[in-house]
Amino acid sequence: MNETEQNSGNIVIGNDVTVKGVLHVPNRAIVNGAVDGEITAKELVVGQTGRIVGHAKTERADIYGQINQTLDVSQSLILRSTGKIVGVIQYTEIEIEKGGLVEGKLTQQQSAPAPAPPPPVVVSAPEPKDSSADEEI
C-alpha cells in the first residue's frame, strides 16, 4: 500500500463521537466512538471504546471493542482480548484471543477469494540442484 492509498479513503471516529447512518469507507475505518447503522470498509479497526450496532462489512477486521448484530469479514477477523461480538458473524479466517467474547452464530465462507500461493520461481540459470533432480528421475 503506497502513501496516497494510505492517506485517502480513511475515517477515524473518535471517542464520544456518535455516527448514525451508512458509511462507505474505501480504505480503513477506525472506530473509537459509536456507529449506529451500516459500515463498509476495506479494513475495520474497532478500538477499545468503539462500538458498532448494526451491520459491519469488511475485508479485515481487528476488534478491540464491541460489535452488535452482524459482522461480515471476507478475509481475516481478529477478536482481541477486550473485544466483544454479539450477533451473527461471517468469516473466512478467525482468531480469538483469550478473553474475547463471542455470543451468537458463526458461519465460515469458502476461502476461494484468498490469494493463491505464489507460483514457484523459475530459475533460468542451471544450478547444482538440477543434477540432484536428474538423479531422482
Binding site: S76, I78, E93, I94, E95, I96, E97, K98, G99, G100, L101, V102, E103, G104, K105, L106, T107, Q108
Partner: peptide, 16 residues
Amino acid sequence: EITLQRGAGLRGELHA
C-alpha cells in the same frame, strides 16, 4: 473463556 487459533474452522453457535 475462549481461545481460537487462526486457521480453525468453526460453524455453529457460541455462547458465553
